[in-house]
Design a protein around this nucleic acid. Structure first.
Lengths: 248, 248
DNA sequence: TGTGTCACTTGATTTGGGTCAATTTCTGTT
DNA sequence: AACAGAAATTGACCCAAATCAAGTGACACA
């Protein structure tokens, strides 16, 4: 099944420079060709909204580069981020007419879109795709459930440490299965976005970042560049034994 | 596709008395027969643990009757419920060796299990099943995300109101798409289970139940039997416009 | 060289929900 | 009918995080 020259594809679009969650191209060359014919690219600038919850959504897509978020809001403006879309992640639901969440670009992004109807039809015919999509969805479900534990039961400090370790892991996941020791990365989120993700206020996020810095758990250069002197220490602060899966 | 005499099946097991999320039997009679051969039943008493997180899990299953929960815990004992399994809901993940969550029966339950390996093989061969499973998983993912909003941003009172409206809706969903007016139902959860679901303590749950009763939003007979004089009022208290989907 | 804006930090104060502890109400058993 | 144990309620107090408010620093642009 698995060949050595895995194609750089999450959900099969020929020339996207995606290197995670690779799927072997040889195994699905027919589908690839068909997918090519229904795909197109769209790019968005940092801060732009890709789509609003409730809007008609006639495509599904995967993120090629950059970072986007899924958010939900209550009428009075309280907002909760419910998903973080990193390169190779999939958005949109086959069989659904309209978007369920707000999708916003937090950095400049490039998305690889597939027209929904033909994509659905193709899914009917090629089991491979539904199976792949099922796997990805199950991974997302696991991530969402891990997140529920964080939102429901973790302290502010643990929440921050968890988020940092996720970003660090995701950043490093190309090379290292278990990041450890000294690590350096850029936070792709504003304090407000972090707050919305963690179910906190931005002031609390800021305070806890300062506290982690004061305690030597992290070092900060500017506001966004983080270095973690000791990954194990950070994971300990995150409050769970989670060093395996989690958001993959 | 859709016939009138839908077979009482969630994921295709001939004689389970499941009436939700029905799938037409005629469309998949071949699969049905094969599924029959790999299925068996297990029952558990209220309070029993079906499986512990990390344990080897060589089956997938769907709930026939009764209610089970998925929970996650931190080492220090803090626990968060991450899923509520009602009749017709599916547990277990094809392609995964061991359980990711604790599964506990909160009432006496009957589960319809399928041996995992043959189930997976069958899934490879019959696209229908993967597609159905994808749909169900996407629904669960939506429910999980809705729950993230609740955990991250709602007040204790709103959380309780949300839970009550979900149980009410689920209870009534066989007949009514949009329950309204006066409604009566039994809570299938202890105060502690409610707390674990909502990310609260059981004392807070109890206090808020009393408050909702004092304010006439609900009436209580005993501890578990709830009547909602005005469903719209309860939904208002829940704090969102959610009258559509949500946990289906 | 100013001036406006945006992202962030820090401080003072308040508060919702947690913690600890004492009852009360149910449910089942003998 | 009496009792035990579990489930739920209620009260007093406390604290983590929210709220309100002031200030800093970086950057664009005129």
């Amino acid at each position: 099944m698995a060949h050595d020259d895995v194609y750089p594809v999450s959900l099969a679009c020929g020339d996207c420079p995606i290197r995670h969650r690779a799927v072997c191209a040889r195994c699905e060359s027919d589908e690839l060709e068909e997918l090519e014919s229904i795909k197109y690219y769209r790019s968005f600038e940092a801060g732009q909204t890709v789509i609003w919850a409730g809007d008609k959504m006639d495509f599904v897509a995967s993120v090629v580069t950059g970072i986007a978020t899924l958010t939900q809001t209550l009428e009075d403006g309280r907002t909760q981020m419910v998903g973080l879309l990193l390169p190779s992640d999939f958005v949109g639901r086959p069989g659904r007419e309209s978007a369920a969440y707000n999708v916003t670009a937090t950095t400049d992004i490039l998305m690889c879109c597939f027209r929904r109807k033909p994509f659905e039809e193709m899914m009917e015919r090629t089991p491979h795709i539904a199976q792949r999509l099922l796997q990805m969805t199950l991974d997302e479900l696991d991530a969402a459930r891990e997140w529920m534990l964080l939102l429901g039961r973790k302290t502010a400090r643990e929440k921050i440490a968890s988020l940092l370790s996720i970003v660090a892991r995701r950043d490093a996941s190309i090379k290292l299965r278990h990041p450890q020791g000294r690590m350096t990365f850029d936070l792709p989120l504003t304090r407000e976005a972090m707050a919305d993700y963690l179910g906190l206020t931005l002031e609390t996020v800021s305070r806890q970042m300062s506290a982690l810095k004061r305690d030597g758990v992290i070092e900060l250069e500017g506001k966004r560049h983080v270095t973690v002197p000791d990954m194990d220490r950070l994971l300990l602060e995150a409050g769970d034994d989670n060093d395996g899966g989690f958001l993959v």
